[in-house]
Design a protein around this nucleic acid. Structure first.
Lengths: 335, 335
DNA sequence: GTGAAAGCGCTAACAG
DNA sequence: CTGTTAGCGCTTTCAC
């Protein structure tokens, strides 16, 4: 049983392929095809359950109706929530989503971008980039591909951005920690440290501490490597023990660090950290179940997904690309 | 700057398109093309960075090199872990993955299957089906599409299955609860109750209780609706209060119920359940961070992903489809 | 208002 | 061993 195609339909209806194609692509009125003819065609298509061959269509039009989403780790609820919302917007417009993770690896990001554009033929890309600089995306060959960057900003690179106020969110939650009595607030940052999100959060943290009269917050910052979180958290705690007077609060810059930290301080070897106040950039469901009261910075994740995909679709739709930057606000949650 | 295509390459190298195509598709030796010619072609392709047009290729071959994965909820770590492992296997073989969620909705499952097969032209499908029966998949038109079913079995339907031992895992963890002193073990099941996984888990639960001399375990089973978990958990707890003597253990059949339950019993209104023992079918990271000791049934999630995709690729590769059922074992974790 | 025909870029018979 | 050629199923220009 061969699959129904335009030709069959044309013969059965007594119209040409051209006419049917026009009607199906919503150009019936534009070409002045009579309403009754259009109705006949649409009815038949529905009844016979005709589905156009996507490959032929894409080959002809050069459009795949696929959008790529590139993030560091799709298993992270932050990014999976973004993906869910991007998908919601796209599917309403007849687009499909393809998601891949870079694992913060610049080489892998390059490969994924190339693969998606040249191999898969995506119509546009939404990217949370791990790059240090914009050399890669500055290549002329990417000028014709609609790109929207989310979460992270590339230095000195003008593009479409949908990001959040990392500095403000960070400063705010650190202020709250201090207000509730924290005297020494350490900070566990996630690598790569060059990411604009991390830089901004660190700056927000430092600025808040300095404003409260604490000198040299740098000494309280520990880097946690993306792919070695548990070990690095333990090492960081061990180092923090030697801080004069001890720390009484820890601000972590990423949800995975929070999970590792909360698990670690429950162990006997680390019970001296049991009473330390904890704040996390990014709010996750877990914080509502813990006995431990964790402060957090809640990000408008859904909006990042919805905004970025809407902007991308506008560009694909032919709207002039004005390279806009959208900065969304965070909410601080105290518990 | 037009994109490089086979024709250009052929002219530049002085070979025909055919030859280059053969070499590129690994059929060089099969057609007896000399090693030096092959090397020349491969070198040029690498140097000029030629990427074949996927649409033309798919149109010609009828193959998309896309595999569809259909699950109930890709945000559930159980399924996202499967997805990750499926993707790992597929990408090694040059295939891409497309994931969609049904939200346990049979109508949506139908649409997704149709969409993936007829609209996207996937080469095969891995499905955790929400269907009650196999009427849909029994349609003759699906005979030619490679399908592998995971997690859930459709009654009276012979197919390729990769599932786990739900009955055994369930019985085992309930036994452990009883051994550590539980006298009355309630069970919170997730809907739809017709899913083979849920049925089997319920049967394992009942069988274990009966073996220990408890009559009528049915009265201790409460259904939690997939899309109303929090409310239903609260309602179930309220109902369980009226059980004579009270319950001293709760076995939940799904990780989302566990999260809701753990959050709920921390609230003052439900503090009478604070000391109840809890077991969960499926092990999640959270259980390692909680003060509360939760028993769990750990599933070989990675293996489900790897196995199912390997089987699917074999069928696509032309191997005779013998409709095998693979049953994987679980591990009970006591804390 | 409608149709004929060209061609998107690739693969695989078939011919030599 | 290598090349010629005929489409895959669709869209779109151009002609009527």
């Amino acid at each position: 049983m061969r699959r129904l195609q335009l030709d069959d339909l044309a013969k059965q209806l007594g119209f040409s392929k051209t006419l049917i194609s026009m009607v199906l692509n919503g150009k019936g009125n534009h070409y002045g095809i009579s309403q009754s003819t259009q109705a006949t065609v649409l009815d038949a298509v529905a009844k016979l359950n005709y589905v156009p061959n996507k490959f032929a269509k894409s080959l002809r039009t050069g459009r795949s109706h696929f959008i790529g989403l590139i993030v560091s780790d799709i298993a992270n609820p932050f990014y999976s929530t973004i993906a869910k919302n991007v998908e919601g917007v796209l599917s309403r417009e007849g687009y499909n989503l393809m998601v891949c993770s870079t694992e913060e690896n610049e080489e892998k990001e390059k490969q994924l971008v190339e693969m998606m554009i040249y191999q898969q033929g995506v119509d546009g890309l939404i990217i949370a980039s791990s790059f240090k600089d914009a050399a890669f995306y500055n290549q002329a060959r990417f000028n014709t591909v609609p790109l929207v960057f989310i979460d992270r900003v590339l230095p000195l690179y003008s593009a479409n951005y949908v990001v959040i106020d990392n500095f403000g969110g960070s400063a705010d939650v650190v202020n709250k920690l201090v207000e509730t009595g924290a005297k020494k607030v350490a900070c566990l940052a996630i690598t790569p440290l060059h990411l604009s999100t991390i830089e901004d959060r660190l700056n927000g943290y430092k600025s808040a501490l300095l404003a409260h009269g604490y000198k040299k917050p740098e000494q309280l910052i520990k880097a946690i490597h993306y792919d070695n979180i548990q070990n690095d958290v333990e090492a960081a705690l061990n180092e923090l023990r030697s801080v004069k007077g001890g720390v009484d609060a820890i601000f972590v810059l990423n949800n995975n660090i929070a999970v590792a930290l909360l698990g670690t301080i429950r162990r006997k070897e680390y019970e001296d950290f049991k009473e330390v106040k904890i704040a996390c950039f990014d709010d996750i469901a877990l914080f509502n179940i813990m006995d431990k009261k964790v402060f957090s910075v809640s990000q408008p994740v859904e909006e990042i997904g919805r905004n970025s995909s809407n902007i991308l679709l506008e560009i694909i739709g032919g709207k002039e690309n004005n390279k806009t930057t959208t900065v969304l606000s965070t909410t601080t949650i105290t518990r």
